[in-house]
Design a protein around this nucleic acid. Structure first.
Lengths: 237, 237
DNA sequence: GAGTCAATTCGCACACTGTACGAGTGCACT
DNA sequence: AGTGCACTCGTACAGTGTGCGAATTGACTC
């Protein structure tokens, strides 16, 4: 089965000097992120990652146990982009929470593939824990503690993940097709559905058919304001 | 390459009467749902689905174009479980929206695999459109219209998907391990992290370490109340 | 210099995936 | 009896994650 030994030294390629010093977790995660950001979760395969690193397909497995583990590393890496403004002053908590929410949202927009990964396993990396610590600090500054803090904090996180996840998932998988495009392409089917569901049909015509980035912004601003109002009304004391 | 023809009639099995009447979209989606509910997204492969139906591996492809299309069908099927109580009376919209939210949440709990699918492509099936129509009706009954209706409605949906998705994703992939178990298993690592992040550490000790179903309920009730309060404060007029 | 050892890389193999294609089957109709 | 349609399924192909064992390295000791 083995190939015949090379007939002469000249046949065999030269000693294959290692110009890349080695493989390391950081470079691996770097390359994985490039693939993920460019083509989404489906674009990352261990083989493609290997060739991208000028490495053999399975070389990565020395530095990383699993693909899952690699994704965990990538996820924590992008969590570094999330910031929580420190809560200064009286109502500082609200600006802090809002900044946190917006920062998390734009991070999800930058890396839509994260959506599928959130919540699937606990996020334990240094960046994730840093973000959690800071966020908890913001709500603690508002006066929350214990269960109430948990409730308030996770309300914000859940909403942001839901909202940004929807936005990101959409634009990631449809790759440039706007809702308006969809509605155009669906044509007759929507016509038929709309006949039975006039409310839905008119909503589609009024809102979705000319949805722009502004609508996304308005929607998130509205939602975030509602959420923060609700929390504010439940501040302790 | 082809097998030699059977030497005699007796060798060949009898005429293979078709005891199952045929394959149909409904049975296919039924079987797919069983696999999905039992083992999650990873548990559904076309081959396993085929054998489950006493059918060849690729027979499904006559009734369904893609695996994606199959998932779309499955997703719409479970959307049938979601109900929107009709908005009666003065403040009927609030009960209606709350019922919708709770119904959507329990459906996600029953079918955790849906979480990954939401928002990836537009949901156009009959059940999805029915739910949307009814939900829009509830918010319209509250007095909302146009963009405001869109904002209010999607706030509720986004929150529910975020919250229930987190709950479901967790318990689906960890299969029985509670957060407390995790914390126990992580032991020394958490010790080290906690040393640098005392706030986070105390929160973990106080809340997550003895998280029960009650906490999940309380959290969702809190979040939903905040969301609905926020919307109520922005009712038109 | 020669020899040894651990760290690192990588080729091969295995089981499994989605699905294109074409040959086959049975039923209803002419 | 023949023709065509609705349907099924075996085979094949490219691709996946990853276990395993052999090969290559660079740094160290004698």
């Amino acid at each position: 089965m083995a190939k015949a030994a090379p007939a002469s030294v000249w046949v065999r390629p030269e000693k294959a000097r290692r110009e890349q010093p080695a493989l390391g977790r950081d470079q691996i995660v770097d390359a994985a992120l490039e693939l993920l950001d460019a083509e989404g979760l489906g674009g990352l395969s261990m083989r493609r990652l290997g060739t991208r690193l000028n490495a053999g397909a399975t070389s990565v497995y020395w530095h990383v146990a699993n693909k899952d583990e690699l994704l965990e590393l990538a996820l924590d890496r992008v969590m570094a982009e999330v910031t929580v403004p420190p809560p200064d002053g009286e109502d500082g908590w609200r600006a802090s929470a809002a900044g946190y929410a917006r920062s998390l949202r734009t991070m999800i927009h930058r890396h839509p593939w994260t959506v599928t990964l959130f919540g699937v396993r606990p996020m334990l990396g240094p960046n994730a824990t840093r973000v959690m610590d800071e966020a908890i600090g913001a709500f603690a500054a508002a006066g929350f503690a214990g269960l109430d803090l948990e409730y308030a904090w996770s309300l914000v996180v859940d909403y942001v993940i839901g909202a940004a996840g929807g936005e990101a998932g959409w634009q990631a998988n449809q790759a440039g097709a706007s809702p308006a495009d969809w509605i155009g392409a669906l044509g007759p089917y929507l016509e038929r559905v709309g006949a039975e569901r006039p409310l839905l049909a008119s909503h589609v015509r009024d809102v979705w058919a000319n949805e722009t980035g502004d609508v996304l912004e308005g929607r998130f601003a509205f939602g975030l304001a509602c959420v923060l109002d609700g929390i504010e009304a439940r501040l302790p004391r």
